[in-house]
Design a protein around this nucleic acid. Sequence first.
DNA 1: CTGAAAGCGCTTACAG
DNA 2: CTGAAAGCGCTTACAG
Lengths: 331, 331
Amino acid sequence: MATLKDVARLACVDVSTVSRALNNTSYVHPDTKARIFAAVKELSYHPNILAKGLRQGKRHTIGVVVPRLHMTVFAEVVQGIELEAREAGYAVIICTTEDDPKIEKESLARLRNGFVDGLIIAGTGHNGKLIQDIHATGLSVTQIIRQQDNRLNSVVVNYETCGYEATKYLASKGCSHIGLINGSMKIAPYRERYNGYIRALNELNLSETTAIPESVYSLNSLEYGYNCALELMSKNPYLDAILAAVDVQGIGAMRALKEKGIQVPSQIKLISLTGHIIGSMLETTMTSMEMPAKQMGRQAALMTINEIESTDSHIPRHLVFSSALVERESG
Amino acid sequence: MATLKDVARLACVDVSTVSRALNNTSYVHPDTKARIFAAVKELSYHPNILAKGLRQGKRHTIGVVVPRLHMTVFAEVVQGIELEAREAGYAVIICTTEDDPKIEKESLARLRNGFVDGLIIAGTGHNGKLIQDIHATGLSVTQIIRQQDNRLNSVVVNYETCGYEATKYLASKGCSHIGLINGSMKIAPYRERYNGYIRALNELNLSETTAIPESVYSLNSLEYGYNCALELMSKNPYLDAILAAVDVQGIGAMRALKEKGIQVPSQIKLISLTGHIIGSMLETTMTSMEMPAKQMGRQAALMTINEIESTDSHIPRHLVFSSALVERESG
DNA sequence: CTGAAAGCGCTTACAG
DNA sequence: CTGAAAGCGCTTACAG
């Protein structure tokens, strides 16, 4: 790898001049410039971002910490982040935690050590102090999907309203035994969806039927949705609707209903509260509350980069998106 | 952020001694050590990985370049990479290209500039020279899922055999008008699956029915599978089986069949050649050739890290996994 | 318009 | 057992 020094030697100038020419940071004589660019070309010189970052105190990198990618909304979120970051000249370091606080802690510990200028995180909620610490250290932090600390930036959906509206919608369709498949109540979005569901039920004078796990890990899987659907049906024989917190749960639930010979939507209606595009292509297409995941990722990246690059003292920003009901066959 | 110097000052020793104590790189007197660790704690010092990397010529970071994450096998692959990398103390920088050679080129250009020690790529096939260049520069390169250059490491599946076996399997079930939904023939896995399909058809004395796109971009989507299924049926009214190159295509195809009122599998059988777990939970579960995506990601990470850390001259390694047929309802 | 020097935060021969 | 010095590849005041 050629370095600045090599280029300088070949072009017969000082390294500082090469630096200035390459970064357009002050006037350089055209002839000198030409010699420099020729040398750059000949040596196929590429500046070392690391050294640049060290000198300038900027890494042009943001870290992203999410539970997992496969079969979740986070794959789309990360694509949005990456897209926006790329356009701003930032790289993205990804860490998956499986929602394990220990893994999260390790990942955060590594990231803080000069790897990144900022952090976008969908956290477990168990490392709040560490995250505050990192923020105090000067790193920008933005919470995505899950907000646990209002002193930090966030980009989320109004989950409470989402749960509320979906429940109301099902009631308007004539359902009165509405079950909820949810994730851990320790994680804000799940908790809030539950609150919205309960608020609607109270208004409607209906009672709850829920399948909510105690454990924190890996709760949004297909099998989990499948099992919870069975659980809901055994808890309430009159069940006529199911709210699934996320798509994969809904898909698992649909399979369980199919195996039980239950017709969707005539016997039981089904709605996902976190709709992806996939809902539109299932055999029975799925009615969903859709959230703009990619857009949310982009906004989180913008927010983070703004905070990194601004010199003002930081005031946390909170961006709340709404989910939109998309009616399809299942409900 | 505290630096080595701060710690040294507080512990009343030289920075070099602090460095040695922290890295256990030579004996340091226990008392000195204790003072140093106390200072580290008091200042909550975290070593700057960037500076360390600059000095040691190692970044402990690998770059991953894939077309996209959302709804693809790459989400799982990347999780595997990240898991293995994390255990080896490496960070992972992710770049998505949307299979656009230009975006890929830009991403590669950025990564080569001192961001990473090695690269794992599922490429478009349009930047072969650039990738060789980067490899020649000293970066380790491993191809994942898609192999286009046998001078570089690779971790793939035997796609030819996969296409061949799936076709034979369908024939053994009595199908004689087997259609193929594929991706761009410019991309190796698609091309090889096609070859396997053709080899089987030749042995069976059957003729092909294919839906193969000319354009390179975004071809593995739900809508694409949906449209291709319709195309296959109009091309061949006797169609009795469909091979879909990837799951999302299969899901789209299933929807198209459903809308046409065609029974799966009695009228048309359907197999995905790149099975995820999701196939097991669809309303009509999908028979698939399953590939160990996460495992492949892990192996690619190991291969890359080995190459980075070994000083031997590099001999490219090629790891070929097999897909396994998993029989389910659709075929 | 350009050079010489200092420094970003670390590691590592070289002495002693 | 520890310090002083050089250096990784770059940028940026400071001179001239």
